[in-house]
C-alpha cells in the first residue's frame, strides 16, 4: 500500500510457544502461533522441538498469508538464537535460515531476553527503565549502560517461573503452574513463613520451592500458594528497588511471562509509588514469548546493521543478555 517502513518476519520458539509475527516500525501487522502443552509433567525439550517442527509450516503459512493481505513485504527474517532449549532453537533456526535464503533477505539472530525488553520499551514507550525480566527459566534485574544491558541481579539457581511450575506440578496442577497458583492463592487465609533468600543483589528460588512442597503436608494449598508468591515476589521487588536506588533511574519495566501475574504487578506498583517512580508493563500477550518481540528487535538490529550469515547463525542455548552489543541505542 503506502507503507514505506521495512517489515520483518520474526520467529520465536525457545521453549513451549512457537510464534511468528510480522512487524514494521509502527505496528504488529500479523501474527500466528502454536503452543506445546504437555499432557502431564513439565516441558521436555525434545517433545517441544518436535511440536515446533510439526507446526512450523502451518504457523509460517498463516503469518505470511495474513501479512500478504496487509501488503507486507518481508525485508528480513529474525529468529531467537538463544537462550533456550537447544533442540527447540535448532528447529526454529533451520526454518529461519531456509526462509531467509528462499526470500533472499538478510538473517538476524535475536537474543530472546533482549527481545522481551525491547518490545516492552516499544509498547510502553519508556526510554531508559530498570527492567525486571521474569519468565520460566530467567529471572533478572537489568539496566542499560554504555552499549549493553547490564545485569544488576539474577537468580542463583532456577527462574521464578520454573520454581512456580515445579511447585505446581508437585501439588498436582497442570503446566504451566503460575496462573493456577495465582488463582488458588486468592483463597488463602494465612501466611506461613518460607525461606527468603536475597544474597547481595541476587536471589534464589530452589530452597523456597522445596520448603513450599514440604509445607503441603501440613497446610492448605491456598495458604502455601499465597505464601510462596508473597515470599518470591518480595525478593524480586526488593532487588528491583535496590537497582532503582543504585542507578537513580525513575522507571520500572516488567517483562517476561511471569509478569502477567497481577500480584507481582501490584507489588511493583506499590514500590514505585513509594519511590515516586513510574511502573510500566506491556499487554499480557507481549509478556509471554511471542514472535512480535523477535521481529521488532530484528528491525532495530537490521537498521543498525546487525545481520548474520548462514554460516555464523549457530544457536546459542546459553546466550546471556549482557553479551549483546546494543547497536541500536
Amino acid at each position: 500500500m503506502r507503507r514505506k517502513s521495512k517489515s520483518i518476519l520474526g520467529i520465536e520458539g525457545t521453549a513451549w510457544n512457537l510464534s511468528a509475527a510480522i512487524v514494521d516500525q509502527s505496528r504488529v501487522i500479523a501474527s500466528a502461533e502454536s503452543s506445546y502443552r504437555p499432557m502431564e509433567g513439565g516441558l521436555h525439550p525434545r517433545a517441544a522441538a518436535q511440536h515446533h517442527a510439526t507446526h512450523m509450516e502451518q504457523v509460517i503459512h498463516d503469518v505470511l498469508t495474513k501479512g500478504k493481505k496487509n501488503n507486507a513485504k518481508i525485508s528480513a527474517v529474525a529468529f531467537s538464537i538463544g537462550p533456550g532449549f537447544g533442540p527447540c532453537l535448532r528447529t526454529v533456526a533451520t526454518a529461519a535460515r531456509a526462509l531467509s535464503l528462499s526470500m533472499n533477505v538478510p538473517l538476524i539472530g535475536v537474543n530472546h531476553c533482549i527481545a522481551h525488553i525491547e518490545i516492552g520499551r516499544w509498547l510502553c514507550n519508556v526510554a531508559d527503565p530498570v527492567i525486571l525480566y521474569v519468565s520460566g527459566a530467567n529471572s533478572q534485574v537489568l539496566s542499560y549502560r554504555d552499549g549493553k544491558y547490564r545485569i544488576f541481579g539474577e537468580t542463583l539457581d532456577i527462574g521464578i517461573g520454573n520454581a512456580l511450575d515445579k511447585f505446581g506440578r508437585y501439588a498436582g496442577l497442570l503446566h504451566p503452574g503460575g496462573p493456577k497458583i495465582e488463582e488458588i492463592a486468592r483463597k488463602a487465609k494465612c501466611y506461613m513463613p518460607l525461606p527468603y533468600v536475597v544474597k547481595g543483589m541476587d536471589f534464589s528460588f530452589s530452597g523456597l520451592t522445596t520448603a513450599a512442597k514440604d509445607a503441603l503436608a501440613h497446610a492448605p494449598l491456598g495458604d502455601v500458594c499465597h505464601s510462596f508468591q508473597e515470599t518470591a515476589f518480595a525478593m524480586l521487588v526488593e532487588v528491583t528497588e535496590r537497582a532503582l536506588a543504585h542507578t537513580g533511574k525513575k522507571d520500572i519495566l516488567l517483562v517476561g511471562g511471569v509478569g502477567a501475574n497481577s500480584r507481582l504487578m501490584e507489588m511493583l506498583n506499590t514500590m514505585c509509588q513509594d519511590r515516586s517512580a513510574k511502573f510500566f508493563a506491556p499487554d499480557k500477550a507481549y509478556m509471554k514469548d511471542n514472535g512480535a518481540m523477535i521481529a521488532y528487535t530484528g528491525l532495530l538490529m537490521l537498521e543498525s546493521g546487525a545481520v548474520l550469515s548462514v554460516e555464523n547463525s549457530a544457536v546459542r542455548p546459553n546466550y546471556r543478555p549482557d553479551e549483546v552489543e546494543v547497536t541500536w541505542r
Binding site: A234, E241, D274
Partner: peptide, 30 residues
C-alpha cells in the same frame, strides 16, 4: 538508601530499616 536510613543524633548513629508497603506485613517485620 533503598534498605535503611542512617541518622546522626547527639553524636550517636541511628540505623533503621524502613517498612516496605509492597510486601506482606509478616514478611516485612520478620
Amino acid at each position: 538508601g533503598a534498605e535503611a536510613k542512617i541518622e546522626l543524633c547527639d553524636g550517636i548513629i541511628l540505623k533503621s530499616r524502613a517498612p516496605k508497603r509492597y510486601r506482606l506485613k509478616e514478611i516485612d517485620e520478620r
